[in-house]
């Protein structure tokens, strides 16, 4: 279980970083979303994994799951959601105003060449 989850976090963050480095805004938005998923999973894991500790008080349970990471991750999700929405709007506006969807303005000189190859 530990291995699966740490691989998942690593994979999400690695894909996120790769996508953020792409030249077009849409892939950057996707990359930031993946990055946020990876980070949220990591926050959740900071409360430790356990199959025997329930999230709410139950009879016969040995302990309780740490409630704080769940609260933290909830906040992080909400903030990340708002930020993504804002970024999507901003990219659309930048595209409407400049006529292309490149992130880097210096990239516009090479607009004839497709950066995705």
């Amino acid at each position: 279980m530990e291995l699966t989850l740490s691989l998942a976090v690593g994979l999400l963050i690695a894909s996120g970083v790769w996508l953020v480095l792409r030249p077009r805004t849409f892939s950057v938005v996707l990359g930031l979303t993946l990055l946020a998923y990876g980070v949220n999973l990591l926050i959740l894991l900071s409360g430790r994994l356990g199959a025997t500790s329930p999230p709410i008080a139950m009879k016969g349970a040995s302990g309780l799951a740490d409630p704080l990471p769940q609260a933290l991750v909830l906040t992080a999700i909400v903030i990340g959601f708002g930020m993504t929405a804002f970024l999507v709007t901003l990219s659309l506006r930048a595209m409407g105003e400049t006529g292309n969807d490149r992130v880097d303005p210096a990239d516009q000189g090479r607009a004839g060449k497709d950066p995705d190859g």
Binding site: M83, F86, L90, A94
Partner: peptide, 19 residues
């Protein structure tokens, strides 16, 4: 818009690192 886009993306990555 363009300067804002770069600023927002950089700071969103920064927020992820913060978390």
């Amino acid at each position: 818009s363009r300067a804002g886009l770069i600023y927002v993306i950089l700071n969103l990555v920064g927020s992820s690192l913060f978390l």
